[in-house]
Design a protein around this nucleic acid. Structure first.
Lengths: 235, 235
DNA sequence: ATAAAAACATGTTATATAACACAAATATAC
DNA sequence: GTATATTTGTGTTATATAACATGTTTTTAT
């Protein structure tokens, strides 16, 4: 059996996590290097679960993650899609609270784990680390507020269009410059957009008929980004 | 004309804002005392507006504030109700972004204003200030996530019940131990609960008929908190 | 290679809630 | 103190979307 580094084709290193490593003092860089783990997750693997208490900070070094809450009758609402390099599960850590959402790898993922006491130490001696985490919070809170209004006020077409544009913003295009660089099931798309799976499928089809997107299995091409934005803005 | 201190019946002082003042070093306490403003707002006055850029940190020392986003077709969604002593408009400050919501006093309010450079200086030299702000963010992000799921998944009765319980949590009871210590219009209640004003009025009436609450104008008495919780949990 | 399960697709029906209409009560302004 | 505007209240209708049903395709497991 190959070791994980070979499996992933590269040696993951927290030095490649700029929000954290690049703003540390030389001394703290060394301190961090001796005090973190690397964790590997396969597609579909649970990273953390609602109700657990976080033991440290998770930094997504590689891969894609969905974060979701279990709602009424177990209906899943995806509250966040994460790309590298981003913090993960840090809300609960800083609220000194349990996780209120679950995280699942939708890709092969590499995650750097920094124990609670280590990251708290780094924050207190490196104000830029603090400011970066504050900024992550501020950005995510802004996103979440936008989403609350969109998901409650927009109609199905607007919600789906917005979700596709968000996925594009987070994951970008593949090399062809058209295909959104993430593959989700129709159910995931529905759970991200607050609608039933049937309606996600149906509405994707109407977008295809309108030549706004093209669909091939789970690969989605954005053909007319402007039109998608108009659909999103109209509600 | 009386000065504002007399009008409010007390001399507001940032020393009474524990999240900030009590965790400062002696030197920084003095520094802060020389570098903040006191601002007064009457009921209905705008504190900040969507699109503006924040110039500093706002600390609500007294009063009640609603924070809302203007959504599709101008439909208002209240995203937060604030009580003293809480931070206000700080998301935009730390995201280095414009305000994405507006804030209005629903009460007479006293707000301490700390210029941007001052609060950033205090954060870098007092790690507890940083941790308190991180905690505010973490708590609010948690609240916002819960709300997203509730507002999208719960039915009208559940949404309204949850809103009433949140108002209770934030503002508490009046001296009688029954009346929620905040007076909102039916429209505000509707905009907080993602429903039309008509449906807020109607559903409040059914709660009154079920003896769960009692209503007298804008004063709402919680008669059966447990039952209200059950309605909220059922969705 | 075959069976079983999961995901995808589409048509029909049911329903929660918005939209509309209008009346009464209350607050605000002159 | 009267007029005007705003808020509250209630009944009716329209509609967006969930729920359900059923078939097809794709993936996974053995």
């Amino acid at each position: 059996m190959p070791n994980r580094d070979e499996e992933f084709g590269f040696v993951p290193d927290i030095k490649d996590f700029p929000q954290l490593y690049s703003v540390l003092s030389e001394g703290d860089k060394g301190f961090l290097m001796e005090n973190y783990d690397i964790r590997y997750y396969k597609k579909g693997e649970k990273i953390y679960t609602e109700g657990e208490k976080p033991k440290g900070l998770l930094c997504l070094g590689k891969g894609k993650v969905k974060v979701y809450k279990s709602g009424i009758g177990g209906k899943e609402q995806i509250v966040r899609m994460v790309a590298a390099s981003g913090f993960l599960g840090y809300r609960a850590l800083f609220a000194d609270d349990m996780h209120i959402a679950s995280a699942v790898a939708i890709d092969e993922c590499v995650i750097f784990f920094i124990p609670k006491d280590i990251i708290f130490k780094l924050i207190s001696s490196n104000k830029k680390v603090c400011m970066n985490i504050l900024k992550s919070f501020a950005t995510e809170l802004g996103f979440t507020r936008y989403r609350t209004v969109s998901l409650t006020q927009k109609h199905i077409r607007g919600r789906l269009a917005e979700s596709l544009l968000y996925l594009l913003e987070i994951y970008g295009y593949e090399e062809d410059g058209q295909t959104v660089n993430v593959q989700l099931s129709r159910e995931d798309i529905a759970n991200f957009s607050n609608m039933t799976t049937s309606n996600a499928i149906r509405t994707l089809s109407t977008f295809v008929n309108e030549d706004v997107i093209a669909v091939n299995g789970r690969f989605i091409k954005i053909l007319k980004e402007e039109k998608l934005e108009r659909i999103s803005d109209l509600g």
